[in-house]
Simulated assay, not measured.
Amino acid sequence: MEQLISDVSHFHHTPYYCEENVYLLCKKLCTDGIANAEGSDIFVVFISNEKKQIPLWNQKASHRADGVILWDYHVICIQINQGGGPPQVWDLDSSLPFPSPLPSYISETIRPSFKLFSDFNRLFRVVHAPIFLRCFASDRRHMKDSDGNWMQEPPQHEPIVAEGNDLN
């Protein structure tokens, strides 16, 4: 199981679709026995702000040596370690170890000691994974430009539909 946990390639990833990636990640963590079957030990964290400009470091999509990128928002998964160790951060877009201990992820990705202009202050919304898995639905409209063209290619799978909202 250790091999699976440390190999990000075992998890579905479509660049720029972090919320769908995290949904599928949470599902896989639960079904593979890495997390509790119902997901009670994992949390989904949305990071954004009113300006939709949040800097995060050590991101694969960055073109800079320090890995910093300005996202409109980002979504990660945090797993509480039942064994007493630090919580683990699952970030498919990070160049840090996968998963990363929460304290090092915060210091190397969030960088709270780095002085930011107020426009870049980040807000965090934490959702318990069982609620997220039951209620999340994809909305890909924000990934299209004003002419209806994709700014980034969408995942090949159909958009995710919340439980009880099946359109079929």
Rank of each mutant, 00 (worst) to 15 (best):
V8H: 09
H10A: 13
V22Y: 09
Y23H: 02
L25E: 02
L25Y: 04
K28H: 02
G33S: 07
G33Y: 11
G33R: 04
G39N: 02
D41V: 04
I42C: 14
V44A: 01
K51N: 12
Q53Y: 01
P55Q: 08
Q59I: 02
S62W: 03
Y73Q: 07
Y73C: 06
H74F: 04
I76C: 02
C77E: 02
Q79L: 08
Q88R: 15
V89Q: 08
W90L: 00
S94V: 05
P101K: 07
P101E: 13
P103H: 04
P103N: 03
S104I: 15
Y105S: 03
S107Q: 13
S113V: 01
S118Q: 10
R122H: 05
A129D: 05
P130T: 11
L133R: 03
C135K: 14
A137Q: 07
S138L: 07
S138C: 04
D139N: 15
R140Y: 10
H142G: 06
M143E: 02
M143D: 01
K144L: 04
K144S: 01
D145N: 14
N149K: 06
W150P: 07
M151G: 09
M151K: 13
M151Q: 13
E153T: 07
Q156V: 13
H157W: 04
P159F: 02
V161D: 00
N165M: 06
N165C: 01
N168Y: 12
